[in-house]
Design a protein around this nucleic acid. Sequence first.
DNA 1: TCAAAAGTGTTCCCCTTACACCCATGA
DNA 2: TCATGGGTGTAAGGGGAACACTTTTGA
Lengths: 246, 246
Amino acid sequence: MTTQLEGDGVGVQDSGTDRLGVAWPSYPHEVLGVVLSVRQSQLCVLLWRRRLSPQRGRWALPGGGLSADERLRGAITRHLAVKVDVHEIAHLEQLATHSAVDRDPRGRVLATAYLGLVPSDADSEPPPDTTWQPVDDLPQTAFDHRFFIDAAVERLRAKLSYTNVGFALAPQEFTIAELRDLVSAALGYQVSPTNLTRVMTRRQMIEPTGATSAPGRAGGRPAAVYRFARRELTITDPFAVLKPPR
Amino acid sequence: MTTQLEGDGVGVQDSGTDRLGVAWPSYPHEVLGVVLSVRQSQLCVLLWRRRLSPQRGRWALPGGGLSADERLRGAITRHLAVKVDVHEIAHLEQLATHSAVDRDPRGRVLATAYLGLVPSDADSEPPPDTTWQPVDDLPQTAFDHRFFIDAAVERLRAKLSYTNVGFALAPQEFTIAELRDLVSAALGYQVSPTNLTRVMTRRQMIEPTGATSAPGRAGGRPAAVYRFARRELTITDPFAVLKPPR
DNA sequence: TCAAAAGTGTTCCCCTTACACCCATGA
DNA sequence: TCATGGGTGTAAGGGGAACACTTTTGA
């Protein structure tokens, strides 16, 4: 079998043919979105319930097919907007591509998943049959979607520690208490607001806006309002060890 | 356009059709290997020179098509063995999938790249038209392969710091001086053997075999021989900050 | 005995963590 | 003035980096 792509053209939608005349197979390709957000102090993933078989009744990741004229990132953005009405994705990155031959019983489909993060204050009453499911209490999921979800959560938790991804889970402005809630929910354990402030400030991830928020009805000192200094992914702690010499 | 895959079967090699009768396009899919190894104290990538257009004469990553009955990992393993005679891959992980519509002028092909690591003592006189190219001095490369190479190097450098991936670049047994050479080459800057030993020992990544190696002709104290304690990928320094409470 | 190579000990410094203490507000 | 929630100061501990010093060999 000749597998290196050389010579004459390879047509989309058909089996390709290389210059030796050997068939070059084609596969349908789907994109899936693992959309995470903190809802009611829990890290949640957006799932919708399948109405049809196979896997009828199970919870699945939103997504769909890759069209001939679009790229993977464009495809997942489109599907999330159209199908589950998600428009406020603050961060989107590719996770992995799965290729098990029988991952879909109807025939072979390759799947590329993306990790998408949505701020906790983004509106989104999700459409019918779609909900925010806490990742610590997942129902039975369809196909191999569970692997993608686990990978996404793991990736997020790791990146919270050495990048500023937190911005993608947080509102534009927030108090330290709110940020602590978000980060604790995302990581799955409590972090102290004291040190969270210090670490994030030292790394210049967050900065005070100057404003303060009104205290609750029980009183208390008004909280300072912060914002993320940058709202694009930045690596803030590049190397743990083996740093380059200064 | 209906893009969610539901209902009737989707055939490989053909355009699929979902239950609404809307076409589900298929694409050829190739796998590429970014095979890295330290050669003569330089981090190198295995490239082969294209003999045919397009991109004739440019250096390309080894790889090839995905067959109907195999998965991506199997495909890249097969291609590396058959085409560039690489059998001693100590670590293999998926890097990314590129989907630019025009990434290959002959027609649309999706590409998934893998990062492969080969120990520095693996034989491999590479086949004709194939060489180990230092990543700091790359020639002009074909298609979008340069992006994959850069991503691979970046991934390796990051993981050297918080995992034991080093095992995949090192021989079974080695002295600290040899390990220092490898790590320095991979990272692109000198690391001190003193602290390298301490860090890797504390994390139980390496352990002495008890043997010593003969000194060179100029004399000198014989070096202790070490090995990696585990030869599978292990995360040794999970979180830089925001650790869970003890 | 000297040079070369390898390994160890010690110190410094920065960062994270823990925790006590102080500040601002509503009732 | 008290309870409540927020923020700051300070000390402890760990780990990595730097560097001097010791050990072991060949010539």
